[in-house]
Design a protein around this nucleic acid. Sequence first.
DNA 1: GCTCCTTACGAACGATCGTTAGGGTCTAAG
DNA 2: CTTAGACCCTAACGATCGTTCGTAAGGAGC
Lengths: 181, 181
Amino acid sequence: MAARLFAERGYHGTSIGDLAKALGVQKGSLYAHIESKQDLLYEAMREGAEAFHAALDAVPDDLPAGERIRLALRAHLRVVAEQLDVATVFVREWRYLEGDRAAEFLGERRRYEERFRALFRDGRERGELRTDLDDQAAARLVLSAANWAYTWLPAGADTDELADRFYAILADGIRGYATPR
Amino acid sequence: MAARLFAERGYHGTSIGDLAKALGVQKGSLYAHIESKQDLLYEAMREGAEAFHAALDAVPDDLPAGERIRLALRAHLRVVAEQLDVATVFVREWRYLEGDRAAEFLGERRRYEERFRALFRDGRERGELRTDLDDQAAARLVLSAANWAYTWLPAGADTDELADRFYAILADGIRGYATPR
DNA sequence: GCTCCTTACGAACGATCGTTAGGGTCTAAG
DNA sequence: CTTAGACCCTAACGATCGTTCGTAAGGAGC
């Protein structure tokens, strides 16, 4: 609930009064449920982290590397589209977390990126991907594209199809003379 | 000057008092130079737009499509690294522009994205890139990666090398059996 | 029936917000 | 010397911020 407003107007752009009004309640009443505004931001971040990790968990690990990457991309984009609010907080508003919670977020993000990178590394090591692949750069390329999607994703877009389009480009490159599928 | 603080703490997270202190001045004194806080955000956005467009202007148009894309990626990443403040405002803080200025930004971004997309479309139409290339998706993939870079770019990173790494992945794909270079 | 806990209210708190006003100091042109 | 304008000061403005307070209604468990 709070995540929606944070995503819309930003953390500092959303007042406790705004949140209370959205809930149909006086602003003082909110403090029966939270200790501070920061708590709401923290909860939204945690929700986002959980959603992204859960989506990645659902990718089977007995598939070829390419397929796993395609499915991971689908999973990530689906979270962005279906849980846009918490996803937005996770990718953009986390910066306003204070104290240990900011560090906790960074750890969470690092862990997620590492899981993503492993998809590429494993694929390379098993010989399913190019042997000279820069897996760090590849993971960042994909994750960046997926993270940025929320800025232009139209509501109700088919994210699976979009993920497949990205993957098609990524798999064979933009140059001609495509390798056989 | 203001862009730095906006990039660091966000627009709403930066007070006029903060800006004044950074300039070694009382906050009331700022209003001899600006009409409102919004003006500072607007100026930073305009600076960012100009920097990105100027960087793209410097890409020669008598090169093969692949080279132009590689250079455009270099140019974009260089702006992000060397003018991180205005670049950050352009990609993230623009949302707090009010009234016509928000619309003006959207037009500016659209124009920039269109210029980027044209690189891919032209390359495809001239037969220098895959004939089945989805130029819209490709442009978004590249621009997203470039835009997101500011979140993890280490200070003093070699952005040209990074751009080339991205391009290498993009050109030939991640799969094995690379096309001959 | 009594007590406890949750939830909510309305009012108020001190702090900080963006902005304005009035007055002062300096510099450069007339 | 005078004047105009640029620049900065201090002080204050009304508004809004996040948070706290005392109180009260309602339900659950004894």
